[in-house]
Design a binder for these strands. Structure first.
Length: 499
RNA sequence: CGAGGCGUAGCGCAGCCCGGUAGCGCACCUGCUUUGGGAGCAGGGGGUCAGCGGUUCAAAUCCGCUCGCCUCGACCA
């Protein structure tokens, strides 16, 4: 269908459905975002990928602080017994925890082998955090005494480990980076409001910065975070028709407060358990960007998070042209820089312009300025748009003057395109056979009635592979009959096969 | 954990069926010509053929075991 490149130097690489995973792995590696590490399930994030992550972190971090949150840091190791404090929580993570059992290794110089020293086993094994609720609530017990200590609004940027059986770069890795917010409140209403506020914040961020449309919703009890009373989610659909949870926000009720005995004195001098939330987004967002905007030529990055927004490429034929062209390219680069644009001048003599064009397109740079002898004469630059493949020549002054406008248009264009694509992949149906056919053939969201039971949810999952991604928050309720059992239903939910 | 596939130069691969001097493309080094969509020619460097064991005069190739990776399932905020 769509081809990565027809050049004789690159393999022809079809995208859709069956081969998306191959396309995805190729793009991640060739664009220099990340690579597989010697440790199964873990990845090495390369400089370009890290720059992208930094551009995601920065605005999020600012938004958290602007809404009153403070950053802190808690240990990576959690005593095994802490996890056991909250029954549902431990059950949810038991299958995927890495455990540290020794504090020393033994070396054998003869065989040049090393192994854990059997005489140095830890009295209490330590779990490498799969999430930090337990160790954070251990601290919260000491931090919270009165209603004057509330609300307590904490965030941490950290790595976590979940021993995934089937890892994918960025989308599901054994170790990943994220932020996790943990808050404590005096009332249920306030905690719930916090969870909803963060959900809105996530949705705005993902839509406005990553240009990815999302649907806000509530998870079913079956899909809920282990230990939560209510889990809110933002869900999106990727180019292959599979759903991806892009962020979650949990209302934890008093579950962790009870488990860790965190009480406060209210204004009436009465002792009460606090109310809590937790919420997070991860490096998975990078996977979402790749699989929302990418095409046959590679990555396409939204300008607001692109490590390089404009690449400037000098072009010359004869040696005597080189100096003049390069100088002009430098001037253009400086003018863009002066306007706060993230710009790269690629004057590497190792590669010819054509090679550079392909390379920077593969890496998703939104705009390319080319400056050659013709432009030198005319005082122009050639501007090329990555996402639309449009190419035009403008007077240099106009190109510089319009750069912000162009980048904003690209940002909006990417969002509109992704939104139109997602909407075209939402199928509203009341017919189970049709639902199965759609899921089988095209993927996408199935917007259908559900009787509200876990039993039905699991049966549908068993038969179709699709799960309920969420009960949308911003859709009107509507009476109907469950697509599977025919029992009464008061709202449609979104089914999909998910990452 | 189940089913398939793959481990040969930094990367991508051929060679294996049918045993006999380890090859190709890209990348790298040197030189010249080139440079507006992945440059051309000439010369050159680079290998524990995943590991261990077996068969054989001889093993990348045949046999056995082990390890690793990928894809698809099962499982999984």
């Amino acid at each position: 269908m769509v081809l990565l490149s027809t050049s004789k130097y690159t393999k022809v690489m079809p995208i859709p459905m069956q081969t998306v995973s191959e396309w995805y792995t190729t793009i991640v590696e060739r664009a220099g975002l990340a690579e597989h590490s010697p440790v199964r399930g873990c990845m090495t994030i390369k400089p370009y990928g890290w720059a992208l992550w930094e551009n995601i972190q920065r605005p999020l971090d600012e938004a958290f602080k602007a809404t009153g949150h403070q950053n802190a840091y808690f240990p990576i190791f959690i005593p095994l017994s802490f996890l056991a404090r909250e029954a549902q929580h431990v059950e949810g993570f038991a299958q995927e925890c890495a455990v540290v059992t020794h504090y020393r290794i033994k070396t054998d110089t003869a065989t040049r082998s090393v192994s854990p020293d059997p005489e140095a086993s830890l009295e209490e094994p330590l779990v490498v955090r799969p999430t930090s609720e337990t160790i954070i609530w251990h601290s919260f017990k000491d931090w919270i005494h009165s209603y004057r200590d509330l609300p307590l609004l904490i965030n941490q940027w950290a790595n976590v480990v979940r021993w995934e059986k089937r890892p994918r770069l960025f989308l599901r890795t054994a170790e990943f980076l994220w932020q996790e917010g943990h808050t404590a409140h005096a009332t249920a209403e306030e905690a719930l409001q916090e969870a909803r506020m963060i959900l809105d914040l996530y949705a705005s961020f993902v839509q406005e910065y990553l240009a990815i449309p999302v649907i806000k919703g509530v998870k079913t009890p079956n899909e809920r975070f282990a230990g939560a009373v209510e889990t809110f989610t933002i869900e999106t659909l990727l180019i292959d028709g599979k759903a991806l949870q892009a962020g979650t926000s949990h209302f934890l009720g008093q579950n962790f407060a009870r488990a860790f005995d965190v009480k406060f004195l209210n204004a009436q001098n009465e002792l009460e358990y606090v109310w809590a939330t937790s919420w997070g987004v991860s490096t998975r967002l990078i996977g979402a960007v790749i699989l929302s905007h990418g095409d046959e030529k590679g990555l396409i990055l939204p300008p607001r998070i692109a490590p390089i927004q404009v690449v400037v490429i000098p072009i010359w034929r004869k040696e005597e042209e080189q100096a003049a062209v390069t100088q002009k390219a430098r001037e253009v680069t400086e003018q863009l820089k002066a306007k706060g644009i993230r710009v790269k001048l690629d004057d590497d003599p190792q590669h010819r312009p054509g090679w550079k064009f392909n390379e920077w397109e593969l890496r998703g740079v939104p705009l390319r300025f080319a400056v050659g002898p013709r432009d030198l004469e005319a005082g122009t630059v050639e501007v090329a748009w990555r996402h639309s493949a449009h190419k035009s020549t403008y007077p240099q002054s106009e190109a510089i003057a319009r750069i912000e406008e162009w980048l904003m248009d690209i940002q909006k264009g990417l969002f509109d395109r992704a939104k139109a694509r997602m909407e075209s992949q939402i199928y509203r149906t009341d017919n189970y056979t049709e639902m199965r056919e759609i899921l089988e053939e095209k993927g996408g969201f199935i917007f259908a009635h559900w009787d509200g039971t876990t039993e039905t949810e699991l049966a549908i999952k068993e038969e179709t592979g699709a799960t309920i991604r969420c009960i949308p928050l911003e859709m009107p309720s509507e009476e109907g009959r469950c697509i599977y059992t025919g029992r009464p239903s008061s709202q449609r939910v979104l089914f999909a096969k998910a990452y």
